[in-house]
Each structure stands twice: as structure tokens, then as C-alpha cells.
Write a protein that binds this DNA or RNA. Sequence first.
DNA 1: CTTACAGTAGACAGATCTGTCTGGTACCGT
DNA 2: ACGGTACCAGACAGATCTGTCTACTGTAAG
Lengths: 176, 176
Amino acid sequence: MSSARSRILDTATRLFYAEGIHTVGVDRVIAEATVAKATFYHHFKSKEDLVLAYLTTEYERQKALLGGAPGVGVERIEAILAKLAEVSVGPGFRGCPFLNAAAEYADPDHPVRHVVDDYRSWYRDLMRDSLKASGRPNADQKADLLLLVRDGIAVAGGLGDKDAVQAGVRTALAAV
Amino acid sequence: MSSARSRILDTATRLFYAEGIHTVGVDRVIAEATVAKATFYHHFKSKEDLVLAYLTTEYERQKALLGGAPGVGVERIEAILAKLAEVSVGPGFRGCPFLNAAAEYADPDHPVRHVVDDYRSWYRDLMRDSLKASGRPNADQKADLLLLVRDGIAVAGGLGDKDAVQAGVRTALAAV
DNA sequence: CTTACAGTAGACAGATCTGTCTGGTACCGT
DNA sequence: ACGGTACCAGACAGATCTGTCTACTGTAAG
């Protein structure tokens, strides 16, 4: 991974997450990453290419972060929920990058939406497998609920609603 | 309400909801509403003005719709949840207009975000008051949960995830 | 009748956005 | 030494977006 490419991707990640995808132009990314325009288009064939790189990288990061959470079965779920609760009321939190991206890409067949769907499927499966590993009944239904509550916590946290975040965490813990 | 103004607002509502706010330009609204550009700027001083009109109108619509739901107390909550469950898996549903708008406006002090906050506060209060009217304990905490689950249902429905919607409705019903 | 207003049509300015292109520099492996 | 590659600086084209402006039409109230 060349230095310029990672600088572009890091800058795009920061700006896209903090300010939204459509509101941030490639010129802005180029300027803040201090690269030349030709260098940008050397590494990414279009802005959409950069957006997809941003989201897939975020997907990999989440996989590593949550998949590497301590404990097994419901303990892992609890650890993940604790982390989510902490992060979602912390500074700089602006909701889930995937849900925010989905809100900006209305077409469900758009590649961006595929990444979002992949992430949510992966999360649901992680919950279901963890529940099954601890021998919990109705793992599928509970996984659906944990996914929906995760969505709700991310939304509420992004809007600065700490009370709702807390209510969500309580409910999720009660479900497992 | 003049004919041209309502035609503009109706068109904007349809397009902003279905395709997003930043992706739809005023030229597009003007063309599909079949009004002249001068007429548009006669009724709305800027695009942002139109966006705010779109959201506040949607807010009033929701107030009328949910506030006028049949029943009192928890019965009204159940009626609202039933309606939400039905709508959120129906055709043309693309999530909550307020949450989608919030995802496009990152600045929490932006007027758009104020409308979003107002809507969520109003919804939370409606839940809390309904719970209290039926003498339910812990009305505040339960209202927080019902708000968060509503967010989750709207997100899941917008992404076409019917399983999660159902899980959300079950949980909400269990909470009341 | 005339004044005021809502409306139509469309040109225009100015900004911004994506993507291409030219031209030059620096390093790195063969 | 040399060819390839990554990089920088910035001009440029073409599209699009917001907002203003001119000029004209129909209509309803005083």
C-alpha cells in the first residue's frame, strides 16, 4: 500500500464519515490528503471507486474489531454491545457509516448498497452463531432483534440521544 | 396554498424521499412540477427553504396520522406499531424521512437537524404519555426503547429487511 | 379600467464538481 | 545508465447546480 493511496483513503474515510459522501468532493479529499489530482485518479478510477474502497475497508475493520472481541458465545455479544454503547455516545460519533451511506444511495442495486447488505448479514450471522454457541434457543429471531437494536443504537447515538442508546443496550442484554 | 406552491412541495416530497435530498436538484423539482423557475423562487427563497418545508410538512403529517390513531394508551401504541410494521415492508418505503435527512446533514445545529430532533422528541413524548395513560410503570425508559425500536424498524424496512422488522415489532409489543 | 399578483419561458452568471491531460521530478530495480 | 513507476502542480473541458434577471401572460379585486 503506497503512502499516497493510504493518505487518500484515510482522508476520505475521515471526511465521508464526518460530513457525508455527496457533500465531500474529490477536490477536497485531494487537497486535504496533499496529493496531486493525477495521483488520485491513478489509484482510484472514479469517486465511486473511492467510496466503495472506503466502505469495504470499513467493513474489514469492523470484521476484525468485532470478530476479535473477547469471549465466546453470549460473552462476545456482551463485549460487542459494551463497546458499541461506549463508542456511540463518544465524541465524533456520527452513526453507522453503512447506514449513513445507504441513506445517500437510494438504489438498492447500487454497489454501495451491496456492501451495506453484506455488513448487516455478517453482523446478523455473528449474533446468531454466538447465540447458538451458548446453546440459546431461537437464535435466528434473537439475531434479527440484535441487528435491529444495533441499528437503533447507531441511529440514536448519531443523533446524540444517550437515553435511547441506554434503553437499547438494556433491551439487547435482556434478549441474550 | 396556491396550486404552484403545492405542486412544487408535492414533487419535492416525492423526489427527496425516494432519491435523497442532495441528489435531487431544484431544476429537477421545477421540471417535474411543471412550474417556472421564477415561480419556484417566488415561493421558496432557496433550496434549503424547500427542504425545511418538506420536513416540517412531513412532521405535521406524522403528527396528524399518529396522533389520530385509534385507541388510547397502549392500544394507541399498538395501533401505531401495526401501521408502522405494515408501511415499512410495503412498496416505496425507503426508511424514515427524518433519519434519512439527518444522515445527509452532518451538522447537529443545522435547521434540518432541529426538525429531526423535534420529531423524535414528539414521538418519544407520545409513547411516554400513552404508557402513563394506561398506568404502565417506567414510562420514560419504555418510551426511550419504543423510540429506538421505531428507528430500527424504519432502518430495517428501508433496507428491505422484513425479518428484522418483525423482530422489532415483537419486541416493542412485549415492552408495552 | 387598471393595478397588483401569480404564473410561464428561458437566458444568464457564478460556483462547483468530476475527470482528463500536459509536463516535470524523484526513486528504484535491472 | 536506463526504463518504469509513483508522485507533484495545475490547467482544462464539460457537466451540473443554485440563484437572478428580463420579458411576457392571464386574472381577479378595487
